[in-house]
């Protein structure tokens, strides 16, 4: 057919574009990380401060994902199943964190929870609760940037399944908790899992907002992404590439998991 050459040309353009923009550069990070064999990876795994940063990153990400999953599933149920004033505004505002600069997120949190001049900061510090330059601040910044991800996955699924089954369960005498656990949750399971995986990847990798609120203290509030920057700027490129490789590995794994479970949902 006459359209064959055009089709191959398009395919070539797309593959070439993605190869140059994503595939090759990502491959090089892996290659650079293992340029000296396992030396770079072992180097960062033997440094207690780096290990602390990695552990902190994982802890913060897990807390953030739990908060965002509970909040996300709850607010999705409310948005889809209930009627209340201001719903459309809330729905639009929930997307806001996706388009706000991470630096602005950090600034916003500092302005409210900053220990010296924040709106609530001094009062909270008065009762011994430090937010900024401490773990709660890092968690809040991480929760902020990943906030809409679970909601964006769960809302379409909830809309699609409708609520006939839930109503049937209720008319047969199931209470709200039973209905949610037995009917709703199994139906939205894959949407939730997809949202959780995306949130986890996003949470592990947050950089700008965490940089502003964490204070970046070595061995205390420095996270994995901050280690990458610090190592690179201090000419320890091997260490930077090794840490970046670990982070990239998690990201790639997350995307692959999602692409494996996604088609089950779609088809």
């Amino acid at each position: 057919m006459a359209k064959r050459p055009g089709r191959y040309a398009l395919r070539l353009v797309v593959v070439g574009y993605l190869f140059l923009l994503v595939a090759w550069p990502v491959y090089l990070v892996g290659k650079n990380a293992f340029a000296d064999g396992m030396e770079n990876i072992n180097g960062i795994l033997e440094d207690p401060d780096i290990v602390h940063a990695l552990v902190l990153t994982v802890q913060v990400a897990i807390i953030a994902v739990i908060i965002n999953t509970v909040f996300g599933v709850g607010i999705s149920m409310l948005l889809v199943r209930y009627q209340f004033p201001g719903k459309r505004l809330l729905s639009a505002l929930l997307d806001m964190p996706l388009s706000v600069s991470p630096i602005v997120v950090g600034l916003a949190l500092v302005l409210v929870y900053g220990g010296r001049t924040g709106w609530f900061g001094p009062a909270l510090e008065g009762i011994g609760f430090q937010v900024i330059f401490s773990t709660p601040g890092i968690v809040m910044a991480t929760v902020f940037v990943a906030l809409p991800l679970v909601i964006r996955e769960v809302v379409p699924v909830l809309e699609e399944i409708g609520d006939e089954q839930e109503q049937a369960a209720r008319s047969l005498g199931a209470n709200a908790v039973q209905t949610f656990r037995r009917i709703t949750l199994p139906a939205i399971k894959w949407g939730v899992i997809y949202g959780v995986v995306l949130s986890l990847a996003r949470s592990l990798g947050e950089f700008g907002a965490v940089k502003v609120v964490s204070g970046n203290v070595l061995g205390e509030t420095r996270t994995a992404t901050l280690v990458v920057e610090e190592k690179y700027l201090n000419f320890d490129k091997g260490g930077a590439y090794a840490t970046a490789f670990l982070l990239a590995l998690v990201a790639v794994a997350a995307i692959i998991i999602v692409s494996v479970i996604r088609p089950k949902e779609d088809r």
Binding site: V14, V15, L18, L20, V22, A23, W24, P25, V26, L28, V29, N32, P102, L198, A201, R202, L204, G205, E206, F207, G208, T225, V228, E229, Y232, A240, Y241, A244, L247, A248, A251, V252, A254, I255, I256, V258, S259
Partner: peptide
């Protein structure tokens, strides 16, 4: 290709910078 397209979304931004730096 599908995986490649989602990668920039999941990759930490600081790593994205490092990634581009290694080729360009």
């Amino acid at each position: 290709l599908e995986v490649l397209i989602d990668l920039p979304f999941a990759l930490p931004t600081i790593v994205a910078g490092l990634v581009l730096l290694s080729l360009y």
